Structure formats: C-alpha cells, structure tokens
Amino acid sequence: MSLAPPVEPMLARAVPRLPGPAALPGGTVLEPKYDGFRLLVFAGADGEVFLQSRNGRDLTGAFPEIADAAAALGEDVVIDGEAVICTGGRLDFSALQQRMNRRPRTVALLAREQPAHLVAFDLLQHAGTELLTWSYAERRAALESLFQGHGLQAPWALTPSTTDRALAEECWRLTEWTAVGVEGLVIKGLEQTYQPGRRGWLKYRTRNTAEAVIGAVTGSVIRPETVLLGRYSTDGHFLLVARSTPLAPRLRAELGGGLLTPAGADHPWHDVHFTSHWGSREPLAFSPGAPQLVAEFHGDTAVDRGRWRHPVNLHRLRIDLTPDDVPPYGAKRPSVDPDRPAAE
C-alpha cells in the first residue's frame, strides 16, 4: 500500500454562513456533518486492517465490526469517514466514547448491543492507486463505484451529497435532522484535491438557542472571562450544562458591574470539581456566583445527556427570566436557529 498510517485527514474550517458556489474550486458540494469519530480505514487485499483516528491513534480494537467489514472487502483501499453509533434514533457520541480503552471482551459486547457504522465520504486509495491528487468529483465517483461494486451495506453507509444548496438546507438543517445528530454541513470543492492536514473544506454548524442559569465564572465575579451554565434537575440538583467561549466586552461589563453576585458556602458547586474541557482531566479554576441570573446562549447540536460538549456563545442576559423559567436538566432539545452565525 502506498498510503500507510498515520495519514493526516483533510479538515474543515468553520464559517459563519453558507458560502456561495464560487467559494471553492469547481463549485461547491454539500454533505451532512455528523456527530461522530473521524476514522480513516486502511484495508489491504490480504485482509490486514488498521483504523486510524483523526490524531493518528489506533482504533482498530475499538470498532471490531468496522474492522471485520473492511477485511471482508479483500481490496487495497483507504476510506475516510465518520464512525457513528445510533441510540434511540439519535447519533450517540457518548456510546462512541465508551469504546475507548476497553478490553476486547467488553468491546465485543458493546458492538453487539450498539453496533457502530462507518459513514464514508472519501476514498484516498483503491487497488494500489493513490487518489489524493484526484478531484473531489473523481474520488466521489470512485467511492460510489466501490459501494455499488461490493453492494456494501451495514456497517457501511455512504454519506449523501448534493450541489443543490436549497436541497441541503431543506434536508440537513431542519430541526428533525439536528435532533438526530446532524451538526450542520460540510462544504467541499468539486475540483479540490485531498490535502492531508489542511483545512481546505468549510463547515457550517447549525446553532441552537437555549437558556441556562449562570452558576460560576472563570476569572473573578467582577472580572469574568467565561461563564459556567447550569440547570436544575427535576429532583433539585444544580448541574453543569455548558461552558461559554470568552465573553464579549459588553457581557463582561454587565456581569462584572454587579449583576452577578458572589456565592456563599451553600452554593451547590462549592465542593464540585470540573475539568477544563470535554475529555480532559485538567481541573478548572472557577469562582461560584449566586445561581440567580439567566442567560441565553447559542450552541451547536452536540449535546450529551443534557450537556453541551463544545463551548457555547453567551448571547445576552435574560433579567426578565428566573431560574424557574429555565427548562430542567436533560429536557428535550431546544429550538434551532439555522440563520444564527456559528462560532467556535
């Protein structure tokens, strides 16, 4: 095989709005953006398989059902795609995380109970021919031919794509799509080559509008940098739902000007420890504030059991609302605001 792991996958750059057809070489094609694990599948004609994560990690043992399906191809291929698991009609990112660092016996049990699928969206090599210098349109045709020639079914899935912007907006940005784990759109150029490690594609995330209670800040209460947002569970516990991106100067001034007051020793997060970001073990230093002030924020669709996985944008303070007006922790997904600019 001329391509051998690790190979850096081509990446996408966030944009605040959907671009026009001339934004990328040859015109744009749009694909759904899934809430999953990026996975490069290396398969040899001899049945040898390697599953590589975005950062080069070996995930072969974490997804045996995908590895077995790749070995069964009996061809020399390198496929780029997204590993996903569906639970209750929705893509389940936490189920993917449960596959990490587990014993083979445990992984085999999880694979039977919640099988993973590989949503393929690019073909980097086939039958000894490296395709990196081929255009997207040529690689897509080769990928479709591979699927058709083998009659590929689960755990394989071919991502839909379209050059029709109106169709993409109608199909993949509506509430029902975001509710099942489609985070937005990836925009690619029809004449683009595959450029490992380069952010040559574009991505537009659908954003949600929601409310939560400000429970703490990083920095100090009079000089806040970011906020930690919480919601009350039905049994009265105050639980973290999101952390914001750095606050805009206007919001820093409003919060630091006396709207947010320091919390006493009875604050529900007084002895609670948070980490600096999702999946990290690095402790986060924060200053609790009295959980009385409601804020409206914009976040993407990656929500696991009531908690936003990525930092959210604090949009405005809602002094007209009280904590009792905020949905409880784990409530159904908020409304989608597809025209709201994305931010990361």
Rank of each mutant, 00 (worst) to 15 (best):
R205W: 06
R112N: 04
T206H: 05
L110V: 00
W177G: 05
G200R: 14
G128L: 06
L110W: 02
G88P: 07
R139F: 05
T133L: 14
S161T: 08
A142K: 10
E191L: 15
A108G: 11
E113P: 03
A168W: 08
G184A: 12
R112D: 10
G88R: 09
T193H: 13
L143I: 11
R139S: 06
P115G: 02
L96E: 02
V119D: 02
A154V: 13
R205P: 00
L174E: 14
L190N: 10
W156N: 03
F147E: 10
F121K: 04
R173Y: 02
A154F: 08
T163P: 09
Q125D: 05
W201E: 05
L91N: 01
T178S: 13
R173K: 10
A116I: 00
G215P: 04
W156C: 08
Q148D: 15
L110I: 00
Q114A: 11
E211P: 03
V217E: 06
A120S: 11
G89V: 11
T87G: 01
T193N: 10
P104I: 14
V213I: 11
L158Q: 09
P155E: 09
A141V: 09
T193P: 01
G215K: 05
Y204V: 08
A127F: 02
A168K: 04
V213K: 00
C171W: 14
L146P: 08
V217K: 03
L96W: 00
F121C: 07
L118Y: 11
R207P: 00
R199G: 11
V107L: 07
L158H: 08
W177Y: 12
A157Y: 12
A111D: 12
E144L: 06
G128H: 10
S135W: 01
G200M: 08
T159F: 02
A166L: 11
